[in-house]
C-alpha cells in the first residue's frame, strides 16, 4: 500500500489576489459601519449624563456610564416616566391590534385567493396591490377627511384602520405564496379522512402556514410600531400619542435632553429587534418560499 498521502503531492498554487472580492469586502464593511455606528452612538449616548453628552470634543466612550436615563423613563412615579410608559403602551396596543386584525383578515383572504376560483379574482388580487404603488403621504389628507367623517379622528381606531390598509396587501401576498405551496392534496386527504373543509384548514393548513403568519405578523407589527406621519396627523391629544410622535414631542418641549431621547429611542427599538431576532428564520423563509422547488 502506498503511504504517501495525497496532500503531500498536491502542487502548491499561489492564488492571484482577487481584487473584486476585496472590493466587495471593503464595500460590505463600509455598509456595516454605516448602519451600526448610529445605533452604537445611540446606545453610548443613552448611558451618558446630560453634561457628558454635550461635551466638545465628544466623549467617544462614556467616562461615567449611568443607567439613570433608563430609570427615569421606566419610573412611573415621575412625569417623564408616566408619559413614556403611556406612549409605549399606546404604541404596543395599536400595533398589536393592527397585527391581530391584519392576520384575521389576511389569512382567509389569502387562502381564498390561493384556493378558490371566483369571478373578479385576478382583478381583486391586483387591486390590493394598488395601495402600495403610491407613497403613504398621498393618502394623508383623503384618509384624514374620511376619518373625520367617520368621527374617528383622535382615536386609536383611526390609526389601526390606516395601518391595516398599509399592511394587508403585503400580508395577503405573502400568505398567498405560502398557501400556493401547500399541496391541495393535503386538504383533500384530510377531507377524506373525515375532516370538514374548515377542519382541514384548521388542522392541516394552518400549522403548515405558521411561518408565513408569523412573518406577516412581524411585518404589520413593525410597520405600525414605527409609523410617524399618520399618528402625528390623526392624534392631537397628549395622552393618546404613540411612541414615535410622543418621544419627539416630549423631548423638544424645553431643551433637548439628548441622553434621555437616546434612551427612549433605544427602548423603542427593543421590541422590534427582539421580535426580529427571535423570529427571523421564519421571516427569511416567508420571503424566499416558493423561490425554488424543494
Amino acid at each position: 500500500m502506498a503511504t504517501i498521502s495525497e496532500t503531500a503531492i498536491r502542487p502548491v498554487v499561489r492564488k492571484p489576489i482577487d481584487w473584486w472580492r476585496w472590493a466587495g469586502r471593503f464595500f460590505l464593511t463600509f455598509l456595516l459601519l454605516f448602519t451600526v455606528l448610529p445605533m452604537a452612538w445611540m446606545v453610548l449616548t443613552s448611558v451618558k449624563s446630560q453634561f457628558a453628552a454635550m461635551q466638545y470634543p465628544p466623549q467617544w466612550w462614556p467616562t461615567e456610564p449611568t443607567l439613570n436615563n433608563y430609570f427615569k423613563l421606566l419610573d412611573p412615579r415621575n412625569r417623564i416616566g408616566q408619559e413614556f410608559l403611556r406612549y409605549f403602551w399606546n404604541s404596543f396596543y395599536v400595533s398589536l391590534l393592527t397585527t391581530i386584525l391584519g392576520v384575521v383578515v389576511a389569512v382567509p383572504a389569502a387562502y381564498a385567493f390561493s384556493r378558490f376560483r371566483f369571478p373578479g379574482r385576478n382583478f381583486l388580487f391586483f387591486a390590493v396591490l394598488v395601495r402600495n404603488m403610491f407613497p403613504a403621504v398621498v393618502f394623508l389628507m383623503p384618509l384624514f377627511l374620511l376619518m373625520r367623517w367617520m368621527g374617528l379622528v383622535n382615536t386609536h381606531g383611526s390609526l389601526i384602520l390606516t395601518y391595516l390598509t398599509f399592511g394587508l396587501p403585503l400580508s395577503i401576498w405573502l400568505l398567498k405564496g405560502f398557501y400556493d405551496n401547500i399541496p391541495i392534496q393535503l386538504e383533500q386527504a384530510a377531507r377524506i379522512d373525515g375532516a370538514t373543509r374548515f377542519q382541514a384548514f384548521l388542522f392541516i393548513v394552518m400549522p403548515l402556514s405558521t411561518p408565513g403568519i408569523i412573518a406577516t405578523s412581524i411585518f404589520s407589527f413593525i410597520g405600525a410600531w414605527n409609523e410617524y406621519v399618520y399618528a402625528y396627523t390623526f392624534l392631537s391629544r397628549d395622552h393618546q400619542m404613540t411612541l414615535p410622535v410622543g418621544i419627539q414631542r416630549f423631548f423638544t418641549e424645553f431643551a433637548t435632553d439628548w441622553p434621555g431621547l437616546m434612551a427612549a429611542t433605544f427602548m423603542m427599538s427593543v421590541p422590534v429587534v427582539v421580535l426580529f431576532l427571535v423570529l427571523q428564520k421564519y421571516f427569511v423563509r416567508a420571503l424566499t418560499e416558493g423561490a425554488v422547488k424543494h
Partner: peptide, 27 residues
C-alpha cells in the same frame, strides 16, 4: 368526502408533513 366511507391514496402521498407517522395514521 368524509361521509362517503372511502379512503384515498394520492400520487404525492399527501402525508401531513408536520405530523409523525403515528399521527398521520391516527388522524
Amino acid at each position: 368526502p368524509k361521509d362517503r366511507d372511502i379512503a384515498m391514496v394520492f400520487q404525492n402521498y399527501a402525508l401531513y408533513p408536520n405530523k409523525s407517522v403515528f399521527k398521520n395514521l391516527a388522524f
